[in-house]
């Protein structure tokens, strides 16, 4: 594989961040392509629309080991119309899939918050699957900083 300079820089920065965040460099890094495959597997190939889902993530994370992430999906959350699942993906992590939240009409509201590990600065993607089969997506770029002297 030939790398251009930008990819090389990104890979180097990623490697530094891996050490910094307690991950070790893994030969099999997720790529945007692998992430897309994971998303397709989740959606069953349905094309995600924009809107209805909001992913909240810090623009800059102080440490990639603990990054707070929230998702919120607009829905009545009734038996007729509700959010079934929301999957989170991180395209620069060793494995793209981060977590899948499973909702029900008893959730009342399709909101969830957790804390995740990000190996480097990268896009985080949230995909919501509704009970009628429609799919919505939101993406946020999170910059993962490398700390002071110790990294």
């Amino acid at each position: 594989m030939k790398m251009n300079r930008r990819q090389m820089m990104a890979a180097t920065a990623g490697a530094a961040a891996f050490v910094a965040t307690g991950f070790r460099i893994s030969p099999a890094r997720a790529t945007p392509e692998a992430t897309q495959e994971a998303i397709d597997a989740f959606t069953g190939g349905a094309k995600p629309e924009t809107g209805r889902i909001t992913l909240d993530a810090p623009e800059i994370a102080e440490n990639g080991n603990t990054v707070p992430i929230s998702v919120s999906v607009e829905s009545d959350m009734t038996e007729e119309s509700y959010v079934e699942e929301v999957s989170l993906f991180a395209e620069g992590n060793p494995e793209a899939h981060v977590a899948t939240f499973k909702f029900s009409p008893m959730s009342g509201s399709a909101d969830a918050t957790t804390r995740i590990r990000l190996a480097s600065s990268q896009n985080v993607i949230a995909v919501a699957k509704m009970n009628d089969g429609s799919v919505f997506m939101d993406t946020k770029e999170v910059k993962v900083t490398i700390g002071g002297c110790g990294g």
């Binding site: 080991n65 977590a99 899948t100 939240f101 909702f103 029900s104 957790t114 804390r115 995740i116 590990r117």
Partner: peptide, 10 residues
């Protein structure tokens, strides 16, 4: 509510 959790959860 339920969640499938992968190693990228803190």
């Amino acid at each position: 509510f339920a969640c499938d959790i992968q190693p990228a959860v803190s």
